[in-house]
Design a protein around this nucleic acid. Sequence first.
DNA 1: GCTGATCGCGCAAGCGTTTTCGCACCAGGG
DNA 2: CCCTGGTGCGAAAACGCTTGCGCGATCAGC
Lengths: 344, 344
Amino acid sequence: MAKRASMSDVARVAGVSLTTASRALSGVGRVSAETRAKVIETAERLQFQPDMIARSFVTGRSFIVGVLAEHAHGRFSMPLIVGATNYLGRENIAAVTLDAHGTPRVLTEYLKRLRSRRIDGILVVGDDPNRASLVLSEDFAVPVVFASSSATPETDYVVAPDNRGAGRAAAEHLIDLGRRDIAHVTAAVHEPAVDARVAGFTAAMDAAGLKIAMGGGPLYGSYLQRWGIDAAERIIASGQPVDAIFAANDEIAMGLFGTFHRHGIRVPDDIAIIGYDNRLGGVMRPDVPLSTFDPDLVTVGERAAERLLTVIGGEGSPGIDYVQPRFIEGRSTLGPTLEPYDVL
Amino acid sequence: MAKRASMSDVARVAGVSLTTASRALSGVGRVSAETRAKVIETAERLQFQPDMIARSFVTGRSFIVGVLAEHAHGRFSMPLIVGATNYLGRENIAAVTLDAHGTPRVLTEYLKRLRSRRIDGILVVGDDPNRASLVLSEDFAVPVVFASSSATPETDYVVAPDNRGAGRAAAEHLIDLGRRDIAHVTAAVHEPAVDARVAGFTAAMDAAGLKIAMGGGPLYGSYLQRWGIDAAERIIASGQPVDAIFAANDEIAMGLFGTFHRHGIRVPDDIAIIGYDNRLGGVMRPDVPLSTFDPDLVTVGERAAERLLTVIGGEGSPGIDYVQPRFIEGRSTLGPTLEPYDVL
DNA sequence: GCTGATCGCGCAAGCGTTTTCGCACCAGGG
DNA sequence: CCCTGGTGCGAAAACGCTTGCGCGATCAGC
């Protein structure tokens, strides 16, 4: 069992001091070109691998970050976490993933652990209900980046999907298709993601000189399919003209579609529908049934991790970094007429 | 900026030697009860947190494991990874997540990095195509556990969903419902997961003295919805009696259902259907449309991580640890008759 | 009261790197 | 020839913890 070569082994074999070896390999400090070459050659020959733990020990940088998730198993957390940890891994950074859902006492315990590891930074994934307790003491002030969270953008580093942009894009696309009576069926008002999408949607409609269908504003409800069904009923009952709808998520969109279909209203012929979330993302059929936005949470996670490393490196400044949701054109806007079977 | 208290600080304040402080806090070695109490009290008062890096440095244990994923972003990898990393986090173990998809050269580079960190163990998630290159040199022989992988069960530590058990459970459930002409529409033969489900299914049918419908064996095809559609057509065209089907995944099941519905065959009244994967898992409707199995990959990941820590601790022996897929009873076996709208 | 075992504790080595300080050497300007 | 400034390199400290070894004190057994 050949032991691993240490740096002093390299130094000895190369005939230089440990100091010189360290400098030659790390690239800092003054070493002559020939000495450096000799050391590097020796290191390779001995298959030298620097011991990161020893390095961490002396530099204080652990090359480990903490990933604090609201609810790690959640639909939205998973891609964020995987995106982030995967990026970190590529950059040779380890992650200790902690599920913050629990009492503030648990969070405190977790923070202790992170400090104990001399963590380089923290990535907060999703909205942490205990966010208020995320107070870093002065002797443990590491960079924090928020992924897809409603943090305060002025002082925090945030990476999030561009809900506003998606709302705008949805409206613009429907307008481009020639639709004029466009409604927006969304979830609860004052939810950050909802408000942002409403704002973008409204702005695009205003810019086109169009009034939002069904009363000039969004229809607020919930994220449930049930609400989509109810909203469709309400739209039909109102008798008001509606030829397109932007739904706050795919569940609502499916509720709308099912109800319209039952009433003989064709999609997209009579009413075009755009959803959000891409929940059905390529699950079924080769042809995409529902037009929707994929918030690309994996990318959000990656970018958040990238940003965290930047901040750890001492660069970058606070603010929100938006990731553009990817529009996926499906038959609910493109045609041919969507049948229930198509969605299966 | 108060510096962190080190163990020697604790020792000094408590009036003992560094050695004694270490022993009192770690619990190993001989220390009198009163001294121990005094040290612990002092440590708490000073908010002492042991420096894990220093500890790693001296003990050689890094409290970091490598997570090697086949394709981290994949549908199946994500829950495995999240389950594993989350469990590890709970146990205060960090993870460096690496996507092994790439050349063997990349994998070699990754292994170097892991060695460089003195990793405690490796978790292989999913089937690694480069598995053959996962050769650990003798100076880097750490425990390896495979999560949901087709590793060799005699020599490796494996945690996987019990596909065999699911196949058996599916058949048994359908038999319990009084069905007698039960078919199995599955994917490609010789795929480990497929074969295992076939084996379980066949065993249960044999035990009940029943012959598998549609020729005594499974219908092999692919995992695509298209195959479900084709299989349904074939079943209908054959004229053979079939009153229940176990499909290899939910896509196939949906293809079956859609086609049957178009032909006026009611589900579950005429034909009951059970799928696999729980892809639609609670996405839509409050009532579950499709009866299916949830392989509970998060749990598989957790158990694999748990197992890895056990092996690192020097215990446990090779073999497969099966996680039982969770049966989810939906309307495709329970009724009332499933309509396309219900699935939306 | 003597011997040997056990107990409680401290000294000091050691883990592998980075980094500060300092020394010797050399070239160029005064 | 001296001084300055730069260059190439090495000695040694430091990081915070674990642990083998040893020493005095206490204790059990006879």
